[in-house]
Design a protein around this nucleic acid. Structure first.
Lengths: 215, 215
DNA sequence: TCTTCGCGGATTACATGTAACACTTCCGGA
DNA sequence: TCCGGAAGTGTTACATGTAATCCGCGAAGA
């Protein structure tokens, strides 16, 4: 049962590298993605770079201005609220589906993430956020619906571009953590509808908090 | 306030044409999308064809087999159920949001579609389906959340590939039509939460019906 | 001062060239 | 008959060429 070795296509490598650079903030929102320039820096030809850039546009991480190039997407408050609203719907579904399917190893992984998050919640927003992502990813990956996985993953990535618009206050992180615990409890008890509701209200609450914070 | 003239990019024309051909069934599921071959038929070079094909892969209308080409996606029962489940979540959100934003012209359009659908429901599954799509599109387009619009549109298109797996029985069409009426009533009364629930239960019911029909 | 026009530099969008790869077919040997 | 491999065909993936377009800048003119 061996997986085939990585595809070793240049376009994939370029896409992954660009995506990582964007999500890490090395290519901040608004940065122009010039195909010839990137090709020079990455030392490949323009073809795979062009394709990779278009793929990122498809993922929502960059926006295309016809005949005027592509730039890293800039997200404003409206965008973040849109993303939270949609994620509330999609991830709530994922949580409901996951409740019936989680293996005990998944539940253990979830608990591990939450324990680490409880510690980080004190004063490390960066790692809190990483753990938050993992928490959501574990649930989504377990839900068994490949389209939910794909779309949720897209939304999660897109949201990473929002960086400075998100909340880092300690009270907010602690509250989020408590809500995560509630979700995890529902999942552990295989109560799909409780997990669904807990996930939805969690993300809707975060959405409201973000909105109020920037009012 | 003039809209810019159509971009007249070859890649867009090719993408639209291929998408139309796929959705119309001229390129049935499983058809290989050979870039050189399509380029010959469309009388353009391979570059824009290649890009267009990759865009369709991003839309879920085709699947890529690395170094073995791209083919029109084949959907099985599992895929259709996945799509209905996800649409139930996304379109329910759209319905809730739309309830607060629908202009009277939108409501009029909705009613027009439903009236036509009521007539078609008798024995014209083809046009019933078209009107069904329009019904959902009007609501989604009105919801004001651009990401909901984008993702819902993707799901709706993808589902068109499912053709033969969908239900055409008269009783089912009539029931769907009644549910559409219920949704429209909620929207007309600007009752977001009723619209949300009606939309969700409509799509979940259809999902169950499809599942049972193929059992 | 403000606007308009044209030039220079760079990029996009499309066209084309080609090595490596995959599938098919067919043939010889066990 | 069945299997292994070589040749042939067609494609993918990447590289590169180039016309049309866009943008910034500065000079000419109102």
């Amino acid at each position: 049962m061996l997986q085939p070795v990585a595809s070793t296509r240049v376009v994939d490598l370029v896409r992954d590298r660009l995506r990582a650079a964007i999500l890490a903030g090395d290519l901040p929102p608004g940065t122009r993605l010039s195909v010839p320039e990137l090709a020079r820096q990455l030392e490949v030809s323009r073809s795979p770079v062009r394709e990779a850039v278009l793929l990122l546009v498809g993922e929502g991480l960059a926006v295309e201005h016809t005949r005027r190039g592509v730039e890293v997407a800039r997200l404003d408050l409206t965008d973040v609220l849109e993303l939270y609203d949609l994620r509330a719907a999609v991830d709530a579904l994922a949580a409901r589906l996951a409740a019936e399917r989680m293996a005990s190893s998944d539940l253990a992984a979830l608990r591990g993430v939450l324990d680490a998050q409880g510690a980080a919640a004190i004063g490390d927003p960066k790692s809190f956020r990483d753990l938050d992502e993992r928490f959501h990813q574990i649930i989504v990956q377990t839900c068994g619906n490949s389209r939910v996985i794909r779309h949720s993953e897209l939304l999660l990535r897109e949201m990473r571009l929002a960086g400075p618009l998100l909340l880092n206050e300690s009270w907010h992180l602690k509250l989020s953590h408590e809500e995560h615990r509630t979700i995890e409890r529902a999942l552990r008890q295989r109560d799909g509808s409780a997990a669904e509701m807990a996930m939805r209200s969690h993300l809707e609450r975060v959405s409201q908090a973000v909105k109020l914070h920037h009012a």
